[in-house]
Design a protein around this nucleic acid. Structure first.
Lengths: 288, 288
DNA sequence: ACATACTGTATAAAAATATTAAACGCTAGA
DNA sequence: TCTAGCGTTTAATATTTTTATACAGTATGT
């Protein structure tokens, strides 16, 4: 439902905060009559009541409470972004990563950077789709793949080949019937609709490339790892899943690998002029 | 920065979508002059330009693109919530869980429920703080603890005692110097400021209850498990971390446990009348 | 029991704001 | 070079919002 008047919703959020028209009217520099009209109009537009009126004040209805919660979050996002863009707040250095990479590689190393640069405010932004850096306000993203992106500057952080992983049943199946037969049975988990990683791996492994339709797309690497453990299919992973390999919940299914895979820094060329970005790039290139 | 006029921002989003005032003016049922005024006023309020004007049209500036992204997300949240509350969309059955519980316990079992109830639209909402069900639109939350909540109906799902875990160094330390001494050295990780879990465990273990100040509060269970692995302290965990125990990245530090801990269903009494909620509760009670 | 003080509401007038219509300047493309 | 289409500007107009005021209700204190 498209709302006609978002300013009324903003007033609603402030009234709800005060639980009082009279009090909110002071914050908004309006008379309580004006606020009363705004709330009434908003309720008419929405088609449900936001407040219960009693003689001595107002209280939120259940619907009102839920809407308030959503509206507060939404307005806060907007106002924070506006403040940043208007230059009122200096933007934190924002790194876009998957939760997978953040917890397995970045987090343990990040303390060093923060200790060396206590003045740099840092924001680790978990992302699924590590594209559209500018839209998300990302200064530097860390992507996994073969480095063939063209939307911005790309620099290899470290090489990290990709190879197929499966759970114990999948491993056993490969041992029993061989790679080719087993891979005709497996469901292939992939991170993106248009990913050609599996096709390339089939080539490297010398298997007949087949048009597979029974693939399952799971963009989040953590969820994908879990799906492999649960036997929902096989996925292309890298050495960051060493813990699961060590404890034998996951298995490397083949020695064939996509050797040019790795982690890459991705950033807009304009970002280099930001000294915080430059400091981060310098640090991470020495660390990786 | 508080915005004076959110309706202008809404118009901005629509203009940006069309990349054209003339075209957007049709969607908004206004003249292009009116839109031009709105955008101009918004730019004045914000203090930066949203569009670059050329002879044959307009294009977003970098700031405009970032703001558009944020605004679209925010407006979408609001409009979706409004649609739900206005009864235009039937709300999905919403389960509040930690990502920890979702990936380790719920996800593997959930397919059964979805197969048996294909008509029920389900939303798994990851939450850190599993309180305030109504604000978040949660029908049923699954909490871990001793069951002593009073804000809504509580029902035990399954018993799951809590015991202290640490990494190998912590385990070795306990072996060397004994429980009491070792626990005077450890940093205690806790999920909430006001949690009395550690105090209760000290009592159960017969250790002297001490006023500890060097505790680290990490609300998210996944992050807390990682912190324990990284040696940042010891935490109270349960058998859902069996994988980490099995592969010896985590260790149970003591046989003493909080035996009344477990996972609990939490829901408003009014939720029971929702047949989808009732079906979910019935299913999960049989599963747990 | 009753005045008091504080709610929020309702109305119509007044003020502020948004919108329009029309003319204008610009330029990409025919 | 002309033209069609773009966004802008201006001043008049239309609409919306706000106010001032009176009002009705009721917890609170005396």
């Amino acid at each position: 439902m498209r709302l006609r008047n978002y300013d009324n919703l903003r007033s609603f959020a402030i009234v709800a905060k005060h639980s009082s028209l009279a009090s909110a009217s002071k914050e908004l520099f309006l008379t309580k009559g004006a606020i009363s009209h705004q709330i009434r109009q908003l309720e008419n537009d929405l088609g449900f009541k936001l407040f219960e009126r009693h003689a001595r004040g107002i209280t939120l209805t259940d619907s009102g409470r839920e809407l308030l919660h959503t509206a507060n979050l939404a307005f806060e996002q907007i106002e924070q972004k506006v403040s940043r863009l208007a230059g009122e707040i200096s933007p934190p250095l924002t790194i876009g990563v998957t939760t997978y990479f953040a917890s397995r590689w970045l987090s343990p190393r990040l303390m060093d950077f923060m200790r060396d640069h206590p003045d740099i405010r840092l924001r680790i932004q978990p992302m699924i789709d590590l594209l559209n850096l500018r839209d998300e306000g990302i200064d530097v993203a860390i992507r996994w793949g073969d480095g063939n992106w063209t939307d911005c500057l790309i620099e290899e952080l470290f090489n990290c080949p990709a190879w197929p992983t499966g759970n114990r049943q999948a491993m056993d199946r490969v041992s029993e019937v061989g790679l080719e037969t087993a891979f005709r049975e497996f469901t292939l988990l992939r991170d993106r609709e248009d990913s050609n990683a599996w096709r390339r791996w089939y080539e490297v492994a010398g298997l007949e490339t087949q048009q597979r339709t029974d693939t399952l797309i799971i963009p989040d690497p953590n969820v994908r790892v879990q799906a492999v453990m649960d036997g929902q299919g096989v996925a292309l992973d890298d050495e960051l899943i060493a813990p699961e390999i060590d404890n034998k919940t996951l298995f490397r299914l083949s020695e064939f690998e996509l050797s040019d895979y790795g982690y890459f820094l991705a950033y807009e060329s304009s970002a280099q002029s930001n000294p915080n970005v430059a400091a981060f790039l310098k640090w991470i290139k020495n660390t990786g």
